[in-house]
């Protein structure tokens, strides 16, 4: 589609939408949001590129093939649960998906920054959604 407005708008929006999707992904750690919705937003951003500049341009902008992104996300989600293999109780003592946390404490002993394996799972979901949707978009648009 050759629409000057859409192309210009997409140039402006792409970065914003991807950043917003990352924000939503991060926010989902403790508040509404998360990998699925964030992934959808990012997928919409790239779909806009596909609509205005064509599928080839979308593929050029992506770091990898959508299917590879999907596979990587799936693998990351699986791996995020495997951190539970090692734990205080010993090998395989905790169930799959038991979360592991890194928590930093301030000098006064209060909790500071905390990050754990669930966020890895969420990033995996994020990638699976992007990969899955863009693979579909690509398949549909290449047939048109």
């Amino acid at each position: 589609m050759h629409s000057l407005i859409l192309r210009t708008g997409t140039r402006l929006l792409l970065a914003l939408m991807v950043l917003f999707s990352l924000f939503i992904l991060w926010r989902g750690h403790n508040e509404p949001g998360g990998g699925f919705i964030g992934g959808l937003i990012a997928a919409v951003a790239y779909s806009l590129v596909a609509l205005s500049f064509g599928v080839a341009e979308m593929r050029r902008m992506l770091p990898a093939d959508p299917k590879t992104i999907l596979g990587a996300g799936l693998a990351l989600a699986i791996v995020s649960g495997l951190f539970a293999v090692v734990g205080q109780g010993g090998l395989l003592a905790d169930p799959y998906m038991a979360s592991r946390w890194y928590i930093s404490y301030t000098e006064t002993g209060e909790k500071g920054f905390a990050i754990g394996t669930p966020v890895l799972f969420d990033i995996g979901v994020y990638l699976v959604v992007i990969g899955g949707i863009l693979a579909m978009v690509r398949g549909l648009m290449e047939e048109l």
Binding site: L70, G71, A72
Partner: peptide, 16 residues
């Protein structure tokens, strides 16, 4: 669940 899921993920990574 985990074994076929991992297999599917690896197959998707080796798509080409």
């Amino acid at each position: 669940i985990l074994v076929p899921l991992s297999t599917a993920a690896l197959c998707a990574l080796a798509w080409r």
